[in-house]
Design a protein around this nucleic acid. Structure first.
Length: 230
DNA sequence: CGCCAGGGCCTCA
DNA sequence: TGAGGCCATGGC
């Protein structure tokens, strides 16, 4: 496939290097970018992280995850045993802790009723619908879980994706989630590793150069591809 | 001090 | 179905 999006991917990859998403804690240490989960414990950790990072900086999520590990609570059985108040205390640094405490319990119950090895057997579309029916799991969280936790090839759309794609001129900002996703499906190889790196690279790029206010267009590695260049 | 951060739910028209 | 309000901590 030879599209402008692929070209941009190659340029971002050349600039930032492999990102190794999704970060996971291994050996009970700090979350690290090691290329994604390697077992069901880590896959569950990715799912929890996907909830916790909703509209929240990853740095704050790291604190919450470490608190859960300290309490040996980073597993679905323990989470459903703890009451909302206790979970709220543990995940407090991640913000929205009352809502997220409930979401974590609901997601944990979902995983207990639908073991990860069973989920992985499902077709992507059916699995996506199943995830979207879980309270607290919206489109971006579902797609993050599909791609990074369950290794299903599907593109992710987040605020950064919308910002960058809008500025480049791929889509208009009032297009919805599905249209930003369809654009990626139609313009990018449908393969996990590349999709994982694409999303991670877009996040990195949005943080380093394509910031919400005062983007650093002069130093931007994809300056010449962008309609916003001024 | 205000803004932003790897969204989603609820309400109301 | 789409816009607007709400949730909440921590970094800068």
């Amino acid at each position: 496939m030879n599209t402008k999006l692929v070209k941009i991917f190659n340029e971002l990859f050349a600039s930032y290097g492999p990102q190794g998403w999704w970060p996971t804690t291994r050996d009970n240490s700090y979350p690290e970018y090691l290329g994604g989960p390697i077992n069901d414990d880590e896959r569950f950790e990715v799912m929890i992280g996907a909830i916790l990072t909703q509209n929240t900086s990853w740095k704050n999520v790291e604190k919450a995850i470490l608190n859960l590990i300290k309490e040996k609570a980073l597993n679905p059985k323990k989470i459903i045993d703890l009451d909302d108040k206790k979970i709220g205390e543990l995940i407090k640094p991640a913000g929205y802790f009352n809502q997220k405490a409930k979401k974590l319990k609901i997601l944990s119950e979902f995983v207990i009723n639908n073991p990860i090895e069973e989920l992985k057997k499902l077709e992507t579309d059916k699995l996506r619908i199943k995830l979207l029916n879980v309270h607290g799991v919206g489109p971006e969280t579902a797609d993050s879980i599909l791609l990074y936790a369950l290794s299903k090839p599907i593109p992710i759309v987040d605020a950064y994706t919308k910002r960058i794609f809008t500025r480049i001129g791929f889509l208009d900002e009032k297009e919805d989630y599905n249209q930003f996703q369809e654009f990626q499906i139609n313009n990018f190889p449908n393969e996990c590793y590349n999709l994982e790196e694409l999303h991670a690279l877009l996040v990195e790029h949005a943080k380093q150069y394509c910031t919400k206010n005062n983007p650093d267009c002069w130093m931007c590695p994809i300056y010449k591809e962008c309609e916003r260049n001024f």
